[in-house]
C-alpha cells in the first residue's frame, strides 16, 4: 500500500508539473488526466474507494472530456504552441515560482507533524451515502442549485449575440 502511494504520489507530482509547463493544451490535458488518476490511486490507498472511483470517473473522465472537447473546438494548432513557448520565458516564471515556493515553505513548515495517524479502516460508499442523504441532505439540494446556476450561466454565455430572437 505504501509503495502504491509513493509511486502514485511521484507520478501525480511529475504529471502536474508537466501540466503547468506544457506548451500544447492537449498534452497538458493528458498529463492532467494522468495526475488525476494518480490522485485517485492515492485516494484508494487512503481507504476511500468511493472517492477514488469518483475521481477517476467524474474528474478524469467527464470533466476532462469537457476540456478536451473545448480545446478541440478551438483548434489550437502549432502557432498556439509556439506562442506558448514564447510566453514561457524564464522571466515569466521567476515571480510565480518565488511566490509558490514561499507558500510551499509556509505550508510545509506549519503542517509538519500536524496530523495524527490515520484511525485506519476503509470508509466505503455506504457510509458516504448514508451521510449524504442524512445530515448532508441540504448540501445535496444546494449542490443541485449550484449546478443549475452553472447550467444557466454556461447556457447564456454560450449563446451568441443576436442569433437568438429576443421576444
Amino acid at each position: 500500500m505504501a509503495a502504491a502511494f509513493i509511486i502514485s504520489a511521484i507520478v501525480a507530482a511529475l504529471a502536474t508539473l508537466r501540466v503547468i509547463t506544457a506548451s500544447r493544451a492537449v498534452h497538458a490535458l493528458l498529463y492532467l488526466v494522468v495526475s488525476l488518476l494518480a490522485v485517485a490511486v492515492v485516494f484508494y490507498t487512503l481507504g476511500a474507494p468511493f472517492a477514488a472511483a469518483l475521481e477517476a470517473l467524474v474528474y478524469a473522465g467527464a470533466i476532462m472530456v469537457l476540456f478536451i472537447f473545448v480545446v478541440m473546438m478551438m483548434n489550437l494548432g502549432e502557432p498556439a504552441a509556439r506562442r506558448e513557448r514564447q510566453w514561457m520565458a524564464p522571466r515569466t516564471w521567476a515571480g510565480p515560482a518565488v511566490l509558490a515556493l514561499a507558500l510551499l515553505a509556509e505550508l510545509l513548515a506549519l503542517l509538519w507533524r500536524a496530523t495524527g495517524p490515520a484511525s485506519g479502516g476503509e470508509v466505503g460508499p455506504g457510509a458516504v451515502g448514508a451521510l449524504l442523504f442524512g445530515p448532508y441532505l441540504l448540501a445535496v439540494e444546494l449542490a443541485s442549485l449550484l449546478l443549475l446556476a452553472a447550467l444557466v450561466t454556461a447556457h447564456h454565455l454560450g449563446r451568441s449575440a443576436g442569433k437568438e430572437p429576443d421576444r
Binding site: A149, A150, T153, R159, G162
Partner: peptide
C-alpha cells in the same frame, strides 16, 4: 463549511453569468 462552500459557489457562478451578461 459544506453549506458555506456550496452557497458561496452558487452565488459566484450566478454572479459570473450576471457580470458577463451583456452581449456584443
Amino acid at each position: 463549511f459544506a453549506s458555506f462552500i456550496l452557497g458561496l459557489e452558487t452565488l459566484s457562478v450566478a454572479l459570473l453569468g450576471l457580470i458577463a451578461y451583456a452581449h456584443g
